[in-house]
Nucleic acid binder design. Structure first.
Lengths: 333, 333
DNA sequence: TTGTAGGCGTTATCAA
DNA sequence: TTGATAACGCCTACAA
């Protein structure tokens, strides 16, 4: 790797001049600039980011802490964040914690060691002690779908409670009266908020739902949960995520029920698979792209030390083929 | 951020001693070590990776170049690579090119600037000029599902040609004689190899398939392609990926056909959605995890300058519900 | 067993 | 308009 000194030697200039050319700062004669630029091209010179960071303090790196990349929700989120960060000149350091506090601690150490300019955290771990270390080091943090109790950190999220209400509302409007909720993972605050939203809206209609919460969020675990909770007479199932809802569809069909003939199912997220599955899933869509863009904008605001207005993140009901009017006439009571 | 000097001052030692403690190198008295370690803990000191790299040359960073993270295949691959790299002490710099040569060039510059110790490339772009820059800078490269013509780079991939044969074999064994292939994206060498494998095996049985290749690989594009190619009398459809196969199932059902009653469908990859969809998809599974682990092992071998034996990456037929015996008796001719 | 000092590649200050 | 030089944080000869 050639250094700024090699360029200086080849162009017959000093390192200071080369630095000025690279950074477009200060005065450089056109002829000198041309010589330097030629030398840079000839040697395929690339500035050493480590050395640069050591001088200037800014690393132009941002940590992105997520539980995983191999599930669609976080894969999509990571994609949006990475693209948006790179567009603004930042390199993403993606950290998959696998929901392990231990891993998370190691990643935070690494992020401190790399002198990241900021952190985007979608981690689902409750303990915010690790993030305290970042705050202590003056690293700004933006939480996705999570807050940091006691820490000065911005949080970007849709209104999950309202999302829960929307799911209930849609099924109530179709005449449903007997509900089940499949909620997983139970430790996720957004999931909890959606369940609360559903319960609130049903209570307003004088109804209550059978609620089943599960620890794991994989397809098989959700299907087992759904099979347990779906008793005779139930006509509406609310999944707190698309995966949970798709699992509920499988459970219903496995029990010999038809969807949406016998039972309606609604999900949340609007992941691509909501369209792949048959019947295609009715769901409440979150604007994942906008959430990611907004989170990056907020973080850049914190890094630059100036407030950025928080934009609205609207939810949207997406009607597909898993919900329909209740089959029997309205149930008494 | 505290530096090694702050630690030295607090522990009443010199920076050299602190460095020795941190790196477990040279002689340090137990008492001194204890004082230094206490100071490190008290100040939550983290070594500055940039400074370290400048001294030692090794950055402990590896570039991971992918077309995207928001499609399951690459999301899973990125997850495996990131976890395996971090386990070995490397930080992944994930780069989503969006299949743009322009973006890729920018990312390669960034990787050079960050002095990465190696690069894992799953990019689908043909042009290897950008990778030449890495080679010139002495950065080892491992390709996933791709080679680098003219460049000394290792490549890790399953035998896609054999995978094509497996798909054809399974359907032939079920008595099918009239085939279609939905192949996308057409520019992907693995996809091309699978198509070739299918054609070869069918030719051996004296048969040929209707082959439709598409530029785009999204669900909608594949469904359109499938609808075009599925003519009356066809009993078997081979998707070169699970997405293509799932789209073919949708197309068939949209045409009033039953799967697998009227038409059998098989895919390739065995992504999680192969199990979500109804009917669940029969497919050929690639060992994604093992591919990722193997790729990282190969890269670490290149970085360390010692050959690592390449392990076999077996494919596996996964029987689910989209393939069955041909409905009518064997077709004459 | 511990300390001193030089240099890695940059940028920024100051002088020329 | 350009150049010499100090400093960032760390590691490692070399000296003590």
């Amino acid at each position: 790797m050639s250094s700024i000194r090699d360029i200086a030697a080849r162009a017959g200039a000093s390192v200071a001049t080369v630095s000025r050319v690279i950074n477009h700062s200060g005065y450089v004669a056109a002829a000198t600039r041309a010589r330097v630029e030629r030398a840079i091209a000839e040697l395929d010179y690339t500035p050493n980011a480590g050395a640069r960071r050591m001088r200037s303090g800014a690393s132009w790196m941002v940590g992105v802490v997520l539980p995983a990349l191999d599930v669609p929700f976080f894969g999509i989120m990571a994609h949006v964040l990475e693209r948006e960060l790179f567009r603004r000149g930042y390199q993403a350091l993606i950290c998959c914690t696998d929901e392990s506090a231990d891993q998370e601690a190691r990643y935070i150490s690494m992020l401190l060691s790399q002198q990241v300019d900021g952190v985007l955290a979608a981690s689902v771990l409750e303990d915010s002690r690790q993030y305290q270390r970042l705050v202590d080091a003056g690293v700004p943090i933006v939480g996705l779908d999570r807050g940091f109790p006691g820490l000065a950190a911005v949080s970007v999220a849709v209104d999950h409670h309202a999302g829960g209400r929307m799911m209930a509302e849609h099924l109530l409007a179709l005449g449903h009266r007997r509900f089940a909720v499949i909620g997983a993972p139970r430790h996720s605050p957004p999931v909890q908020a959606r369940v609360l939203g559903v319960e609130k809206r049903l209570a307003e209609a004088g109804l209550a739902a059978r609620v089943a919460l599960g620890d794991a969020h994989d397809f098989d675990a959700c299907r087992v949960l759904a099979a347990q909770v779906m008793t005779k007479g139930l006509t509406a199932v609310i999944g707190t995520t698309d995966i949970a809802a798709i699992a509920a569809v499988h459970a219903a069909i496995g029990m010999g029920l038809s969807v949406p003939g016998d039972v309606s199912v609604i999900g949340f997220d609007d992941l691509p698979e909501a369209r792949y599955v048959l019947p295609a899933l009715t769901t409440v869509a979150q604007p994942l792209r906008e959430i990611g863009v907004q989170a990056v904008a907020q973080l850049c605001g914190l890094i630059a030390g100036q407030a950025v207005p928080m934009e609205a993140l609207p939810l949207r009901l997406v009607l597909r083929d898993t919900t329909g009017p209740v089959a029997e006439g309205p149930v008494a009571g």
